[in-house]
Structure formats: structure tokens, C-alpha cells
């Protein structure tokens, strides 16, 4: 029983058979291209609002969910003791390695988990190694923006900030109050970031080849009053990403995309698509050509 797709991806990648999954969250339902079998399982509500009756009816041994969601009152306090709840985040690179290995132990797949964790972190380690020596002034200054809430950025304490800084960018909003504050447009212009990245939530990327929403998000941002003055706009370094690359189980891929956007010279040899293909084909067992979609606009620099 899994209450999020992050958990489902991790389970699949360490070789747990889809047959062992009894139920899924409502957000995973339907025909999810990267998890074709699992996404057809019975829905048991969401990780915010699990449907306890359904869960009990399906009699799983373990329910996997996030550390913070849902409230214990909505889950373990109400469930019978024989259904155990395991809370793992599986979206935070800081705890990811430990959590994957833990999953391996639970399912008796320690070796596979070890290997998957190794794979997951391989490129991140490469990137970290390369940016380690960048001087402060060589680093790009980055402005992140939420795809459908104009001028909503991220600051310290948010996962997006963490990802941006992990691959060597400087988040211009790092010191602001609140995790996802709204900022004054004139401030963005005056900060004059080198790169602007947008995160389009409704566009999952996988199985969706429609490039237009990404393109629109990029172009509309460039046309905002005064944004023509910004270095990132002048140099064509405004990128919109599909949301699946920003969070959760595919942060490793997102990191590669961001690294290439930030430092095209430094990461000339890095091929995020190839890395993604491997992740999908080797670990998730789906054909890359079938599930690949529009992930980023404009195309990565080469």
C-alpha cells in the first residue's frame, strides 16, 4: 500500500513486484505512463485524506506514506495494529540514501536497494564534485518561480531552494521570509538574475509531449514589463521545467537538467536524457521512447 508516487517509484526501482502493491493514492490513479501496473490498483484516498475503510478492507501489511502527511490521527491512530505505517520522505536528497536502503531491508532486497541508491546519487556526486571548485562570483544567480502563481518564489527551507543550491546555483531569494514568498517584481528586475527557472506543476512531463504550456510559461515571463532588462532574459536563459523533474523520486534527473542549464560549459558531457532513459528502462522497466514527453523549454544548451 503506497500513498504517494514517490514511494511507488522507489519500490519499483528496488525490484519490488507491482503485485505486492495493494492500493494507491488518488493522485496516482489512471494510466500513469511510468507506473503502468501500479497506477491501475485500487485507490485509497490521498496522502492528505486517506480512505481508512478502503485501506482496512484491502488488508495491507504496510502502508507507506510521507513523514509529515497525513496526520497520525488520520492514519495509524485509527488503523488496526496489524497494519503497520512506515513514514519515509523519499523526496529529500539528504535522507534519500538512508531511506532507500531501509526500504531494501524491509523487502529483503538490500543489494538492489544499494545499487539503486548508488545509481540515484551517481550523477549528483559528479555534479557536486565539479561545482565544488567554483568561486562565488562564477556561480550563477538564479530566480525560481512557481508556474501558475506569478512572482511566487522559493527561499531557504524549501526543497526547490535545496535543489538549486545543490547543483551550484545561488538562489536570489534564499534569505527571504517564508518558504514560498511572493516577491515584488521590481526587486526581481533589480536583482538581475543570470538564470530564471520556472516550475510548471500541472505538466508532469512523462507521457505528455505537449511542449506548448512550457513554452508559454517561458515566453509570457519574458514579456513581463521590465523583464527585458534582466540578464537571463537577454541571454535567453529562461527555462520552464515540467514538475516531475523538480521533486520527489526524480530529483536526481532534475539536478542534471539544472546543472546543464546553470553551467553548460562545465557539464558539456553530461547527458540528462541518457541518464533518465537508464533510470526508466533499467529500474522502472518502461520503454523510454514511450513515456518520454516534454520536460523543458527551451531545449537544453549543448
Amino acid at each position: 500500500m503506497v500513498l504517494s508516487s514517490d514511494h511507488a517509484v522507489a519500490l519499483k526501482c528496488i525490484g519490488v513486484s507491482p503485485d505486492e502493491v495493494a492500493g494507491i493514492s488518488k493522485y496516482m490513479a489512471g494510466d500513469q505512463p511510468i507506473l503502468p501496473e501500479i497506477s491501475k490498483k485500487t485507490q485509497v484516498g490521498s496522502s492528505f485524506e486517506p480512505n481508512l475503510e478502503k485501506i482496512v478492507e484491502l488488508k495491507p501489511q504496510v502502508v507507506f506514506t510521507y513523514v509529515k502527511w497525513p496526520d497520525p490521527e488520520k492514519l495509524e491512530r485509527k488503523l488496526p495494529d496489524e497494519i503497520r505505517v512506515v513514514r519515509l520522505d523519499l523526496y529529500n536528497p539528504e535522507t534519500m540514501e538512508r531511506e532507500i536502503k531501509l526500504l531494501g531491508r524491509i523487502f529483503g532486497k538490500e543489494k538492489e536497494a544499494e545499487e539503486y541508491a548508488e545509481f540515484w546519487f551517481s550523477k549528483i556526486r559528479e555534479i557536486e564534485e565539479k561545482i565544488k571548485d567554483l568561486k562565488e562570483e562564477e556561480r550563477v544567480r538564479v530566480y525560481y518561480e512557481h508556474g501558475s502563481k506569478p512572482y511566487h518564489t522559493c527561499s531557504q527551507g524549501s526543497g526547490y531552494h535545496q535543489l538549486i543550491e545543490m547543483v551550484g546555483g545561488i538562489n536570489i531569494a534564499r534569505g527571504l521570509v517564508g518558504g514560498y514568498p511572493e516577491v515584488d517584481p521590481e526587486w526581481v528586475i533589480q536583482q538581475n538574475p543570470d538564470v530564471i527557472v520556472r516550475d510548471l506543476y500541472e505538466h508532469s512531463g512523462f507521457g505528455n509531449p505537449d511542449l506548448q504550456p512550457l513554452q508559454e510559461a517561458t515566453e509570457s515571463l519574458k514579456e513581463r514589463p521590465g523583464f527585458g532588462e534582466i540578464k537571463a532574459v537577454k541571454e535567453g536563459r529562461v527555462y520552464t521545467f515540467a514538475h516531475s523533474l523538480w521533486g520527489g523520486a526524480f530529483k536526481n534527473i532534475g539536478a542534471c537538467f539544472l546543472a546543464k542549464v546553470f553551467y553548460p560549459e562545465l557539464f558539456k558531457d553530461l547527458d540528462p536524457e541518457e541518464y533518465l532513459r537508464k533510470h526508466l528502462e533499467k529500474y522502472l522497466g518502461v520503454e523510454y521512447e514511450k513515456v518520454k514527453g516534454a520536460f523543458i523549454y527551451p531545449e537544453l544548451p549543448n
Partner: peptide, 11 residues
């Protein structure tokens, strides 16, 4: 709202 925590904008 737009000056007190500048550059953060309070609705």
C-alpha cells in the same frame, strides 16, 4: 504590504 518585508509581498 509590499514594503514592510521587502522584497517579499504580503497579500
Amino acid at each position: 504590504g509590499r514594503t514592510v518585508f521587502s522584497p517579499v509581498v504580503i497579500p
